[in-house]
Design a binder for these strands. Sequence first.
DNA 1: CATGCGTGGTC
DNA 2: TGACCAAGCAT
Length: 372
Amino acid sequence: MPPRRSSIGSPDLDPLLAWYDGARRVLPWRAAPGESPDPYRVWLSEIMLQQTTVAAVIPFFERFIRRWPRLDDLANANLDDVLAAWAGLGYYARARRLHACAGAIIGEHGGRFPRDVAGLRTLPGIGAYTAAAIAAIAFEVPVVPLDGNIERVLARIHAVTAPLPRAKPELRRRAAALVPSHRAGDVAQALMDLGAMVCTPRAPDCPCCPWQRNCRANALGIVGRLPTPAPKSIRPHRHGVAFWLERADGAVLLQRRPLEGLLGGMLEVPSTPWREDRWTGTEARRHGPAAVTWHPLPGTVEHMFTHFRLTLSVWSGVGGGAGGSWHTVEQLADAGLPSVMRKVVRHVAANKTPPRSERRSADRRTGHGRAP
DNA sequence: CATGCGTGGTC
DNA sequence: TGACCAAGCAT
């Protein structure tokens, strides 16, 4: 009789749960022991946590809950308000889908979250991972979600050396073999906590791991090299010119970006397209929001996106009559600008005709703006 | 299945 | 300082 697969394939969940209970990590979306989790909070946190660190999410989560305490509050909110509240968190399509998802649950599901993976999976912004996570954590459905943390844990436990994404099918099988008969939500969160706090990408804390003795990679001394990352692609460098247009009363022009694509639906300082070739003055001027005299500001704004690096020159001009919305400088702080545009605002404040003493200190701070 | 999609922290 | 990283989704 061949050995049972579980005896060779899967580590025991009890030490993991014991470790989890001992760690007792308190997070604002997590139910207290013995209390049932709120699906709305679980869902909101899972969307925010997609490719985003816990530390970055916490203040956004608190603000969202304070402002929209229940699902239908969020469903009834204006999309622009949701986008503005999301500003700074990144991956803005999530905010659009969050709002659409709230509307779909209110409009098509009687205001209740579907309680199974397949139902959750049909909702905007909810993919395979998030559907499984919500099902397990909010509804105790016996599934193991597979996220980056759990992939790493499983790749190490089982010494899966194939590079991602080729290792995915095996990792999915390994996750399925772990599906618990009870405490599905705790198992899911325990696995993610283990990956986030112990089985970390760099400098994993193996002596503290409840599964150290089950870990093939640990036995082989290759923990630090797993999982094998996918080959990385090169990041191109793009250039643009942003147009800081000020009206006589001091208001500044912003425009809203198209709903689809980069920074979709977010406000921006109008600019040329962002391309790999640098812009000549003549070329850039054609993209300006108004036919005014433009004055290039010293220095540039540098920003790193996932798939390209951006260098933005900023031109300043005075005039009106352009399409868009006008904001006082005080309003800009709360306008819900994405981070790259907040950098533009900061750059203008530091470089636009300040008193001489302030200019010198601003130049030292940014490292830009010096004469060559 | 590869690609597009943000940001801030870390080493 | 730059590369890498973090609880993915949609197309």
